[in-house]
């Protein structure tokens, strides 16, 4: 399983696990989109704590979910991105689309 989904009220948290590349992104995307469709969250948290590698396929994954959430004006937060993943998120300017959070549970307030 490359994604673990946790639902608390209107908040869906997706814990991404392992490498995110073009090969693995599809399954992650399907899992997350299912959870969005099923729970209609007002906030989606993508947690990168257990992501070991990510290339621009991960950026596509984040941007795609942002577009889906924007339709219902739901928010997107990104949590616990390790340094190398933070580097590529910054390169893509993701902070304009999603709030980047550190090692806390801000999203669950």
């Amino acid at each position: 399983m490359s994604v673990k989904i946790d639902v608390t009220g209107e908040v869906v948290t997706a814990y991404l696990i392992g490498d995110i590349d073009h090969h693995t992104a599809k399954e992650m995307r399907e899992n997350i989109d299912n959870a969005i469709e099923l729970n209609m969250p007002t906030l989606l948290i993508l947690d990168f704590k257990d992501v070991s590698f990510m290339d621009s396929s991960g950026i596509g994954l984040v941007m795609g979910r942002y577009r889906t959430l924007a339709k219902t004006r739901a928010e997107l937060h990104i949590m616990n991105a390790p340094p190398q993943i933070f580097k590529i998120l910054k390169l893509a300017g993701i902070e304009k689309l999603a709030k980047l959070g550190g090692y806390s549970n801000e999203g669950k307030k």
């Binding site: 992104a25 995307r29 290339d55 621009s56 396929s57 390169l91």
Partner: peptide, 9 residues
């Protein structure tokens, strides 16, 4: 789903 960032990276 492709971000168009491959070469930029």
């Amino acid at each position: 789903e492709r971000a168009g960032l491959g070469f930029a990276v």
